[in-house]
Design a protein around this nucleic acid. Structure first.
Lengths: 233, 233
DNA sequence: GGAAAAAAACAGACAAGCCGGTATTTTTAG
DNA sequence: CTAAAAATACCGGCTTGTCTGTTTTTTTCC
């Protein structure tokens, strides 16, 4: 038996994360056009962040990449801060939505035995959406104003993320604490690996680290590694 | 028997990493003053990077924090790029030098059984030197000019780092491949944990991840986890 | 139903502020 | 005295936010 929440489709479950200002089908032409432009701006912003980094992502550049005038962009997002705030939500949404869909398409064998979800997570870390997120996360460490909006969003996303992961990996359903541990561990190790991937040139080196992560997670789930760790807290 | 390289003192072994333009004791007053000023600038730059991030670290701010005029700074580092290049080296030097000294002060029991080196590595990740390094590493991903100088330095540092680690942890002396694997794994997991530490509020959560890392490394060294991973490449 | 009014979407120009680099002047050590 | 070190003044370029003007869509009112 699968619980109800995992039966709704991704878009509906993740409604809480969806970008603001999106239009419904029965809205007028103007509203839909507006929503479309806003999405184009958000996508352009993600591309710019991923390609040029936080410091060189200017409003002019975003407008240019979105194929609209800067004036038009200012109409939708009055200040750069307003835009960035929306981009933060959008990176969360895109990352989780993309990963969730891909993992749900895996067979049970791929997911449970081959741990293919870990490779999917790795692939997600290579998307512009994650690169953009990383830029914002790093900038938020030293920019008070940005941190003030980023941190609450990140923590809320962490909650939603946990619930979504639980729905995607039902084989952990009676080991919620271990799943949390495995998830945190996987996120940390994989994001750290992504940080160093251009420095560690040999593919085998990066692959070896992922194998350790994969085996360690198996041991958290099936052996006593998880119990050992959780008992000592 | 300890090999010769680990008997030299840290400063000498890490000479290859030492900041350029440093003075010897028999140099004249002016040269020593100059070296002192350069160090003050580098330290100020690290502090600025750690406190304000890459984008808001201006030459004016660095000079201000170093208590010198901007003109004086320009005299020592003609362009911002020159300064940043030196700061990259300096962050590598400070991180490795600090960590090496601390780990060498651990008892054999603390190091081999308690895996205290992992905690020392974690502490290193909280220093301004690492925060500054992270800013530069992230900026180098999207800034071609910066990447052109950063990547070679980072790869060279990776080599030196590996040799230094081998000297610090002699209990791995007959398992060089496993040590490399464990080091890479540790770096990835810990840096990823550092990335998420402000988002994961509960201390127990972060502690649990570190326990998994610690136990996994033990299993690479003493059990067959390392063999399993390395065999499959 | 249709014209007028309001609102929204879009475009371009302008100004203040900041940053990095250059040139010039002043100070200080040898 | 002279050469390095340090301080000051200045310039060009870029970025953000504001302002004005134009076009298009929606609403209102007769």
């Amino acid at each position: 038996m699968v619980d109800y929440s995992s039966m709704k489709d991704t878009a509906e479950r993740l409604f809480a994360l969806e970008p603001a200002g999106m239009a419904a089908e029965d809205d007028g032409w103007q509203k839909r056009k507006s929503a479309q432009t806003r999405l184009a701006i958000l996508d352009a912003a993600i591309d710019c962040l991923a390609e040029f980094g936080y410091s060189r992502t200017t409003t002019q550049l975003i407008a240019q990449k979105a194929n609209i005038s800067r004036g038009a962009m200012i109409h939708h997002y009055a200040t750069k801060q307003d835009l960035i705030d929306s981009v933060i939500d959008y990176t969360f949404y895109k990352r989780l939505e993309g990963l969730s869909e891909r993992v749900r398409q895996l067979s049970e064998y791929q997911r449970v035995v081959e741990q293919a979800g870990i490779e999917e997570y790795w692939n997600m870390l290579l998307t512009p959406a994650y690169q953009a997120y990383l830029e914002l996360a790093i900038a938020a460490r030293t920019d008070e104003e940005l941190r003030a909006t980023f941190l609450p969003k990140a923590r809320r996303f962490d909650q939603i993320w946990g619930a979504e992961i639980a729905g995607i990996f039902p084989e952990w359903s009676d080991k919620r604490e271990k799943l949390q541990l495995a998830t945190d561990f996987c996120i940390a190790a994989m994001e750290g690996l992504a940080l160093n991937r251009t420095i560690w040139e040999q593919r085998s080196r990066r692959q070896a680290v992922r194998r350790v992560v994969s085996l360690a997670i198996l041991m958290v789930r099936d052996d006593d590694l998880g119990d050992k760790v959780l008992a000592g807290l």
